[in-house]
Write a protein that binds this DNA or RNA. Structure first.
Length: 183
DNA sequence: TGCACGATGAAC
DNA sequence: TTCATCGTGCAC
């Protein structure tokens, strides 16, 4: 399996989002390697994107988003669930891709069809915020046989407050995949 | 220092 | 449709 390097994440955010589909998310914690196949993502383009956390500028929380690509941006939502993003584009772009659903591949139990469920199943929490994805504990890899299939584009979930940005087709998932959160 | 609210999930 | 639960960002 080929681990994705910095250059993969440094590209255009939509391109990264689409090419993440079918890739393997790998998390090693307490000596257990958990793997999920990414089947649904959302792109958050930068400060101009009203749905993005980075639209409020550089703050303590969004510091990671504005940092170098290939790092994990993890945050707590509704005080209950964790969400995992990968930082994309050039350093300072403030862009990221939210991982919304994976399909269990190895050592994954419980449901994975949602950003919060995905983090729970793969044991990802705030301790992984700012983690370098080119390391050995949390990373994304291209599986041996990469046949992702057709990609569907839809509006993002839960960002109705973002006006015109809420209608942009920045959510991508693998057509027909049973693990997608909202087909 | 206080307060409104959210890139969700689950219960009712 | 409602609620859990708390960090973040901004008002005061």
């Amino acid at each position: 399996m080929h681990k994705l390097g910095r250059s993969f994440y440094r590209r255009d955010t939509v391109a990264v989002a689409r090419s993440l589909l079918g890739k393997y998310l790998v998390h090693v914690s307490r000596g257990v390697e958990r793997i999920g196949r990414i089947v649904e993502v959302e792109a958050y383009l930068g400060p101009q994107d009203r749905a993005s956390h980075s639209s409020r500028g550089l703050t303590p929380r969004t510091r990671v988003m504005f940092g170098p690509p290939g790092h994990a941006y993890v945050y707590l939502i509704y005080g209950v669930h964790h969400c995992l993003n990968v930082v994309t584009g050039r350093t300072g772009a403030g862009a990221a891709v939210l991982l919304r659903a994976v399909e269990p591949v190895r050592n994954v139990t419980g449901r994975t069809h949602g950003p919060g469920l995905l983090c729970r199943a793969l044991r990802v929490d705030l301790r992984r915020n700012a983690h370098d994805l080119t390391g050995d504990e949390l990373y994304i890899a291209a599986p041996p046989r990469a046949a992702a299939g057709a990609i569907v584009a839809r509006p993002r979930v839960g960002v109705d407050y973002a006006g015109a940005w809420a209608r942009r087709l920045l959510r991508f998932y693998l057509r027909g995949n049973p693990f997608v959160s909202r087909p």
